[in-house]
Design a protein around this nucleic acid. Structure first.
Lengths: 187, 187
DNA sequence: TGACAACAGTCCAAAATGGAAGGTACGGTT
DNA sequence: AACCGTACCTTCCATTTTGGACTGTTGTCA
């Protein structure tokens, strides 16, 4: 064993890495300070959900798992609906920062049924005609959001705006692709 | 009720739509004529897996589900490893063609951890430096595959080659994005 | 004859998924 | 004040999906 290599085990078992869903919950909680699962649902819908959606049932389950790991804490409304709200603990902040500083390498996948259809013999022009308007609408939506963000100006986190840019570039790529497919003769 | 509208139910319960994994298995079986789950695993790895991966355990489970639905049939090797191999039935061909002709509308998601990291505050330039080489490598790989396909020429299915083009455009978009992020000042 | 790598398949615990169903608060009627 | 409808909010659950650990098989080379 080379010097500098840590001993092949020790006291602490390697802490389970955070799952993407946990990162999303932790990150949204940090933005919000304190939030209920329902708040998280709203939060996901308008922002990170554009590129990584999480079913609502998971937004109810995940916070409790984070509490169990000491990364968040709960608080129960005394009256009314007795809603539970969550906030990130210092350990949670540390875990989130560590993940964010060194995310798993994974380029992602295109994973769209339209592409599967083309792969297995669909007429590309036909598929293109339904895909194009959708992608154009998405692109416009992202561009509007970017403008709105620019107007809002300082004081807000920069991350969300930067990912919007990825959305724009990706939608443009799709539009270019399906436009090409329009030219392809039928199979 | 307007004429031409079918009665609001009848004998046949609505056939469960195919899942993407089932489409992949059916489609690959059709390309191959007859294949074992292991063959499918190899097949996925080199082609459709680039944009829609399927864990190998599913490639063992899914064919049997297709058999149960009458969309494929099994055959057992008489000796040796007694491998099971599958082939698409006429009903399977019909189901696949129907799906391919009218895939669910779903634009897909970017779903990459790197983007999540940026969203939640990572220094975009730092993330970019690990993402860029990976995407460049992927792009080169796709371009090589396209050249190889062009050399192979006629006689092969057109679908796979067309999806490769989507891969190229997508990788270029990523490269453009992360190159922009390199410019962004640190958080 | 054994060792080893590549091949092939099974199994399972732990999640994700998505929808159905169930409660609660609230504003406005009558 | 009783009622209603709607929006809000939460739980539950059956079904898949997931990835990895584990087992066994075949063929090859020393």
């Amino acid at each position: 064993m080379t010097p500098g290599t840590p001993p092949p085990d020790a006291s602490t078992p390697p802490p389970e890495p955070l799952s993407p869903a946990q990162v999303i919950v932790l990150g949204l909680l940090r933005f919000a300070g304190r939030a209920t699962p329902y708040d998280l649902k709203q939060g996901v819908a308008g922002s990170v959900g554009n590129f990584w959606s999480v079913p609502h049932s998971q937004l109810y389950a995940e916070p409790d798992r984070l509490v169990a790991r000491g990364l968040a804490d709960v608080e129960q409304e005394p009256g009314g609906r007795r809603r539970k709200s969550y906030a990130v603990t210092p350990a949670g902040v540390a875990a989130l920062d560590a993940w964010v500083a060194d995310p798993p390498v994974d380029l992602g996948e295109l994973r769209t049924p339209a592409l599967l259809a083309v792969f297995f013999g669909a007429d590309p022009a036909v598929v293109a005609r339904t895909q194009l308007p959708q992608h154009r609408a998405k692109l416009e939506e992202y561009e509007r959001l970017i403008e709105a963000g620019a107007a809002a100006g300082e004081g807000v986190a920069r991350g969300p705006g930067l990912t919007l840019r990825a959305g724009v570039l990706s939608e443009r790529a799709w539009i270019a692709y399906w436009t090409e497919m329009l030219e392809e003769a039928a199979g």
